[in-house]
Amino acid sequence: MALTLYVDTDRWRAHQSAVLEAFPGLVPVAKGNGYGFDNMRLAEEASRFGANLLAVGTTYEAARAKDHFNGDLLVLTPYRLGEDPVPLPDRVIRSVSSVEGVRALVGARVVVEVMSSMKRHGIAEDDLVKLHSAIEDVRLEGFAIHLPLDRTDGSDAVDEVMQWIDRLRGARLPLHTVFVSHVKSDELARLQREFPQTTFRARVGTRLWLGDHEATEYRGAVLDVTRVSKGDRFGYRQQKASSDGHLVVVAGGTSHGVGLEAPKAMHGVMPRAKGVARAGLATVNRNLSPFVWAGKQRWFAEPPHMQVSILYLPSDVAPPAVGDELVAHLRHTTTHFDRLVDRRA
């Protein structure tokens, strides 16, 4: 009895092929929990469709991925002076976001990250003059710019990249390859037309692995079903049942990511109103679970446990049987499955 990720493998791979066609030279990204699939599975998928470069989040992820992917590995987290050393093969390329970092990586293969409007990390325009001499001692694989997902000010992603191309040109830095994140296929094509002597490679994760929502589905197995009457006490905190119904124990708890949610940026009145409503319900211990039964998401009876969740079903809803599976609407990037099942035609 498990929390299972079901994958319609043929459909999933068809979507991968469509994305690869739309983004020539695409660099697949496998980081964190592997977008819900596990990084090792994604490394093997990247090998299957012939990628020559795989982007990973950290040096630790690179150390694990190297045995599952035979091409080059690009570490996205920038090198920092004094970081813990991790033994890595020469086919690993380090991202660097400071002149000092470049100077510390003598002989290494590096991609230099420039500071985008994200303002997260990157070399500033004023430091480009210092970079010119620093790159003489490294093997420069290219430059990179990590763009924001949303542009609420109406600015254009291509314009931002072009401005950086002009700055790098002005500093007389080599522009054979530029890696970009969060661009659309038409934007990538515009950049390639504008600068035909430079190869632009899009680093793509979410769109590649999760772009077809119908290709995957989480389901939690029902472990137990118990009838309760109004006033019965239950659970860790021994709260009282508010009415007659059933408690349904289903696979999937906090260790899987159930009940855990990353903060969301909200735009507009309606999303904010819904957020306020959810917060108000939570103050009276009313929290909607991700599990669906009889066409509706069901309420948690109490906060999820480590490996299971307990749901409450009112008496007018026929309960599932032990062994049934409930669809779960879970965020891939925060979920860890017990097992993955490939469904092929």
Rank of each mutant, 00 (worst) to 15 (best):
D8I: 00
S17Q: 07
L20V: 13
E21N: 04
E21C: 09
A22F: 11
A22L: 14
F23R: 07
P28R: 03
V29R: 01
N39W: 04
N39C: 15
N39F: 11
M40D: 13
M40T: 14
M40W: 07
L42S: 07
A46K: 04
A46T: 09
N52D: 15
N52P: 13
A62G: 10
A62E: 05
A62T: 06
D67I: 06
L73A: 03
V75W: 00
G82L: 14
V86L: 11
D90S: 15
R91C: 12
R94N: 11
R94Y: 06
S95L: 11
S97M: 08
S97K: 12
G101K: 05
R103W: 03
L105D: 03
V110S: 04
V114H: 02
S117A: 10
M118W: 06
D127Y: 07
V129E: 14
L131R: 02
L131Y: 09
S133W: 00
E136A: 12
L140V: 08
A144L: 08
L149R: 14
R151V: 14
E160I: 15
V161I: 15
V161S: 09
M162H: 13
M162Q: 15
D166H: 11
F179V: 10
S181T: 13
S185L: 03
D186C: 14
L191T: 03
Q192N: 10
Q197V: 04
Q197M: 01
T198H: 02
V204T: 12
V204I: 15
L208H: 05
L210C: 10
L210G: 14
G211H: 10
D212K: 05
T216H: 07
Y218Q: 07
R227K: 09
S229V: 00
R233H: 09
D244R: 04
D244F: 02
G245H: 00
H256L: 11
G257K: 01
L260Y: 13
E261R: 15
E261C: 12
A262D: 15
A262K: 08
P263G: 03
M270T: 08
A279I: 09
G280M: 10
G280I: 04
L281G: 02
L281R: 06
N285Q: 13
S289F: 00
V292I: 13
G295P: 01
R298Q: 08
W299T: 09
F300I: 11
H305S: 14
M306A: 15
V308K: 08
Y312V: 04
L313P: 00
S315D: 05
P320M: 06
V322K: 12
V322H: 09
E325I: 01
A328E: 02
R331W: 14
H336P: 05
H336G: 07
R339N: 14
L340F: 09
V341T: 11
D342E: 13
R344E: 09
